[in-house]
Nucleic acid binder design. Structure first.
Lengths: 202, 202
DNA sequence: AGAGCGGTTGACTGACCAGTCAATCGCCAG
DNA sequence: CTGGCGATTGACTGGTCAGTCAACCGCTCT
């Protein structure tokens, strides 16, 4: 039992540090913050961060991979369902928007420090990030084959437009260049999918 | 004449440094490169960079503002023309895509280090960046009033989707997660506008 | 000729911070 | 009670650069 109990305690400490890191990264940014800021926020000693993680980078890598893998699984799961592509895109946009609603700090960190940070962590995780584009592209491709979507827009291209629109909206919320209106989140899902699927034309 | 000649020579050195900085920032990224890398690339002494610029940051600020102001002017100019909103969006997307075609390194730096770097330079230039969204939003808004565009998608929202789609495509090109196909650039303009205006639905 | 003045040079400094490590703590088993 | 081991601590080190500055260059004007 001793082993099990301490293993659990250790896992809790690790999580404590990860959660503190989310808050610190969201508040100060990855490059601007010091490892000591994370330790302070978590209420642990500086060195303990290095007991659980090899480096400052590994903390962010862990946060990103944890969440991104959940998202990739969610997209894959959506794609197995027997619904229209439009509904699939709604579910995907919904998942991402809900991720932000549920934990804005974490999504801020993932978007700002990884997904949009193409020169630093975006580079490291390019393959993982591209995987999401490809999964969305596959949804579009199948919809083209079934006749639901037009075939003169390449699936990869459509995926970029779709994902780009979502990320831009989240970024707008994160930095207050887009108002987070009352109906907000659910309205946003609808608008994104509506824009991409039906277009702005009347 | 002496004054005029040396002033011109000085301006040329300044430009030499700016152009070198574009190459270095594009290759290594702003945070990763050293000021000495810029000086070496420009073939001038380290200290000269500080004769023309107050700081490393100011070099990037200058590059961004130079180009971004040109773009804002271009968007404003497009909006004065008596053409459909769809044509206006085509012209705007065209301008941005052509900027990339003409000087990919500069666009890479602006997008990667400023526009998408929301925590560092994106923060500093948030107002300037938002200005672009607002100008695009105004184009959409007028199109809604004239009946060209549907009115149930907020103009600001549409602007984010439009700009987000463009930037995502450029980012895809920059980091090779989207193939730069043969027809490439002109095809891309068309697809972006087509997607946003008419949608993916058949 | 030579004074003056931008333009130009690059060695140096001061600050910062990621990561190390030796010492301590506290929990459990025997 | 005690030996041992993993968890925890935080002072310290080493390397990295942005930015400074005092000296130097070469052109022009008198």
């Amino acid at each position: 039992m001793a082993t099990a109990r301490s293993a659990q305690a250790a896992a809790e400490k690790r999580r404590l540090i990860l959660d503190a890191a989310v808050r610190v990264f969201a508040r100060q940014g990855f490059h601007t913050c010091r490892v000591s800021d994370i330790a302070d926020e978590a209420g642990v000693a500086y060195g303990l961060v290095y007991h659980y993680f090899r480096s400052k980078d590994e903390v962010l890598d862990t946060l990103f991979l944890e969440r991104w893998n959940v998202m990739l699984d969610a997209i894959r799961e959506v794609d197995t369902q027997d619904i229209t592509a439009r509904r699939k895109l709604e579910a995907i946009a919904g998942f991402i928007v809900d991720s932000y609603r549920h934990d804005p700090d974490l999504m801020k960190v993932i978007i700002v420090e990884v997904t949009r940070a193409a020169n630093s962590f975006g580079q490291t995780h390019l393959a993982k990030i591209t995987e999401a584009y490809n999964l969305i592209g596959a949804v579009v491709e199948k919809a083209q084959e079934s006749g639901e979507f037009r075939t003169d827009i390449s699936p990869q291209f459509a995926a970029m437009a779709f994902y780009g629109a979502i990320e831009q909206v989240l970024t707008g919320w994160i930095f207050d260049s887009l108002p987070q209106s009352a109906g907000g989140f659910d309205e946003a899902k609808r608008l994104i999918v509506e824009t991409i699927c039906s277009g702005l034309d009347r």
